[in-house]
């Protein structure tokens, strides 16, 4: 088991390296000069050169990088080194020596420096991450809990009015654009009808868990509805399938009551694939819930990614892409380990 975990982590690290390399290559293939963006609107060639040096980008002439291979390779190497050992900015040594008072240290794992925001990417990401994490956590709890409960209800009432209603509604919810639900909740439930106050993120540290949770309610519902529809349908299908299993028939033949047959025997088996799905979906939301964060103006990773994209703030984009990738890879490993605990057949021995 341990050897397996180590192997998986090793493969994960390699995947991340490849991912970062691809991101860099794409970055260099772009016709846009990031130094131009980093330097701002009123940029002279000198200022742009300074920005380039400070970010550690290789020189570029008429939109084409000068040293074709060496440039990206060096930059990627610097970036990777920064992840492991930390880095100092500006990247250019002469600039650091000229103005030591302006040197910013970015400790490992250093994701880079945003010239645009005058902050390390780490600072920006660590400010945004708790917000995204909070929304994702609240949403995953909602969608798994209600998705499974409603799915089970549909399964046990299969073919009835209730079942058809649930299946129809979840299809409807599935087809509905998330921004519509989110906008509706914000505009009507919060602003127009005033049923709840307009949500704004409040950390547990400053407002306590109740306030934190209350403010997360609308964004979490928006995000959860998106996933819940598919969890309802998956749960329904899995439970219906496991109800036809031989071991469920055995349980009935033993004289076990219907409730125990459903929850102890049928649902137990159906939960395994659901837990796997939930883990992976949760991880993918951790990379940023772009629509939800934008509607409710929560400054999470999703919103950060959007603004980095608009500003061509490449260090931030690379940092977020890598983090999102790391979450998914990590979630895969965790889910696989979890699987061994849920399903005794996977366990070694």
């Amino acid at each position: 088991m341990l050897a397996y975990v180590i192997r998986r982590i090793f493969i994960g690290v390699i995947m991340l390296l490849v991912m970062s390399l691809v991101t860099f290559v794409l970055f260099f293939a772009s016709p846009v000069d990031p130094a131009q963006f980093a330097c701002g609107k009123n940029c002279s060639p000198e200022l742009r050169e300074q920005a380039r040096k400070s970010l550690g980008y290789p020189p570029r002439n008429q939109g084409v990088w000068e040293s074709n291979i060496k440039g990206p390779a060096n930059m990627w190497a610097d970036f990777t080194k920064g992840i492991v050992a930390g880095r100092d900015f500006p990247a250019d040594k002469e600039m650091r020596e000229a103005a030591p008072q302006n040197v910013v240290h970015c400790s490992a794992p250093c994701l880079g420096y945003s010239q645009y925001s005058v902050k390390t990417v780490n600072t920006m990401v660590s400010a945004a991450f708790p917000i995204t994490f909070s929304i994702a956590l609240a949403a995953v709890i909602l969608w798994v809990l209600f998705g499974v409960l409603i799915g089970v209800l549909a399964a046990v009432t299969k073919g009835s009015f209730i079942d058809r209603g649930i299946v129809g509604l979840s299809l409807f919810a599935y087809a509905f654009p998330a921004f519509f639900i989110g906008t509706f909740l914000l505009r009507y439930v919060a602003i127009k009808w005033g049923l709840v106050s307009v949500p704004s993120y409040t950390p547990i540290a400053s407002g306590g868990p109740a306030k934190w949770a209350f403010n997360l309610m609308l964004p979490a519902i928006t995000l959860a509805l998106l996933y819940m529809a598919s969890y309802v349908r998956m749960t329904r299908a899995f439970v219906l399938e496991s109800l036809t299993e031989d071991y469920v028939r055995t349980a009935r033949a033993k004289g076990v009551s219907g409730r125990v047959v459903l929850f102890k025997h049928a649902l137990r088996a159906a939960l395994t694939p659901l837990v796997t799905m939930a883990g992976l979906d949760f991880a993918s939301v951790l990379g940023g819930a772009i629509i939800t964060e934008s509607i409710f103006n929560f400054n999470g990773l999703g919103k950060l990614a959007v603004s980095a994209n608009n500003n061509y703030d490449l260090p931030v984009m690379i940092g977020i892409v890598l983090m999102a990738g790391a979450f998914v890879i990590l979630a895969n490993i965790i889910v696989d380990i979890l699987y061994a605990f849920i399903d005794p057949r996977v366990r070694v021995g």
Binding site: E245, D246, Y247, R249, T250, A251, A269, D343
Partner: peptide, 11 residues
């Protein structure tokens, strides 16, 4: 039942 592997709950 016929197949004791599928007739017993794997979990």
């Amino acid at each position: 039942f016929q197949d004791p592997l599928s007739a017993m709950h794997p979990y």
